[in-house]
Amino acid sequence: MAQAATAPSTRNYLQELLPRLVLAPSFAAVIIFVYGFILFTGYLSFTDSKMLPSFGWVGLENYSKLWALPHWWRALGNLGIFGSLYIVICSVLGLGLAILLDQKIRAEGVLRPIYLYPMALSFIVTGTAWKWFLDPGIGLEHTMHQWGWESFSFTWIKDRNFAIYTVVIAAVWQSSGFVMAMFLAGLRGVDNEIIKAAQMDGASNITIYRRIIIPMMRPVFLSAFVVLAHLAIKAYDLVIALTGGGPGQATELPATFMYSYTFTRNSMGIGAASATIMLIMIASIIVPYLYSELRTGRRS
């Protein structure tokens, strides 16, 4: 910057301008289509919009209606179950797999992509495949019965008390390989000298992992948490493909709630209010994360 200011030749000026020019269209597009529409949605949540956006100001009415709906509470409760189980199981499985793969085993190059591939599928594919697999009439239970295990029963997907856990199963299957890859990268980044020093002090493998390596993976845990948390909050396609929100409303999540109120129930105001709440939830996770990242970034 300072150099360019002291020698403002045309060439330097252009050089400095070029990146900005190249970035400007996409920057403008992001400003309008992401942040502009976020503001627009926020505004709509204070209006009497029904089928199409309209601009009659109603204050906080949509929010009070939203929080009075048992359907919304249901969605939030499900998100609590789904989100916490999804994040915890994915992290534990991912870390476990990463540690096992990190033992300098043979054929790691084959195993790693096998675990990672589910992430390449869309949630719609995962949901549909698991729907068939879990359906008692055609899937696992049916097959077990055909194989002669008549008493086998697995009907969670049809049971309103357990259906939400099938969503967890499918989502974990999809994402834990990805979390594994994140942890594996983290493990590979741990300084070998430290481990060797610990080994020389006579620490067992378990202690090394527990006291040294896993604590050093704090940033990876944080990244995994942020990635998984926002995936959980915006989960929509998986539920639609797997259960359609049923049985009854047993697997409704805030995202499916938002879509149905905005687009099929002609209550765009309430839909916008729920979208705003979801944004606040995501922001409350991402903003502290970004803040701490930026702070450590500046320090180093």
Binding site: K50, H71, R160, G246, P247, G248, Q249, A250, S260, T264, R265, N266, S267
Partner: peptide, 20 residues
């Protein structure tokens, strides 16, 4: 009835039918 009411009825009927 309009979509909002229709879906409100759906909600109750389907929750009842599923034993909630």
């Amino acid at each position: 009835a309009p979509a909002a009411v229709k879906n409100a009825v759906y909600d109750v009927v389907t929750r009842h039918f599923n034993g909630e």
